[in-house]
Design a protein around this nucleic acid. Structure first.
Lengths: 125, 125
DNA sequence: ATTTACTTCATTCTTTTGGGTGATTTAATC
DNA sequence: GATTAAATCACCCAAAAGAATGAAGTAAAT
């Protein structure tokens, strides 16, 4: 009878341990699903947060590519300046240099060319 | 001894049932995390996926869509006017009306929105 | 016939954009 | 230490773009 009691105790103990493991396991699974969900959400609805676009071929600096992306998002010179925390003059200088390097005359053309050269993300993907 | 065997069988059975329930529970939790993750991913990486628009046409006239296409090709107001054989003033009027109807402030935004609404062909596909 | 929508053009005015030049600072490189 | 590339900002000027009007002709629909 004592042996039986011990046996039952052991079974009970193992069940408890498994419960804890189960909770841990469930938590990990949950986390994995969370990560996967975020990744999936990103893929499905992405606007490409961070991917490097190489402007080196055309001598575009990283700052200029940055400006280019803002132009492509439809911002005015002043808005670009604000978003980069620089003066309007600075923004205009960057933009002018971009036009020269891309060999275009207007911002709409610059946006087109930048997209065409894959210097900036495309609207859809 | 027979009673003991039965007892063990019952315990084992209950553990199995609980295992199944656990798996179900874990699956549900996983799904919830998945949904939450997707939602989070959407929130984090989506910048206005789609904006509800009135009708499919938004009240844009044939001529206005024509102007829109030229804008999207990077032409200046004067160039648009020339291509349509109208005066600069007329082109500007059309363009202004387009901005009003599309509810935008700049031509770059108009181009974007027009593409987004598939009012004009996209550069790629 | 009257209304309605579209297209056309004009004027006036303000804002934005673009071109050109030059200067300063900083970081990296030689 | 000198050179170089970036990034920053300023000033001036001209052109383009945009906002807000009004108006006139035309074609289609009611």
């Amino acid at each position: 009878m004592g042996l039986l009691m011990v046996l039952l105790q052991v079974i009970h103990y193992k069940a408890m341990v498994r419960d804890i493991q189960m909770e841990l396991f469930g938590g990990i699974i949950g986390l994995l699903f969370l990560v996967f969900g975020i990744w999936l959400g990103m893929k499905l609805f992405n606007k490409n947060t961070s991917e490097k676009y190489d402007g080196s071929k055309l001598g575009l600096s990283k700052r200029e590519v940055e400006v280019l992306e803002l132009l492509a998002q439809g911002f005015s010179n002043q808005e670009v300046a604000d978003k980069l925390f620089v003066s309007l003059n600075t923004a205009k200088t960057h933009i002018s240099n971009i036009y020269t390097k891309l060999n275009v005359k207007r911002r709409t053309q610059a946006i087109q060319k930048a997209r065409d050269l894959a210097l900036i993300p495309t609207p859809k993907g």
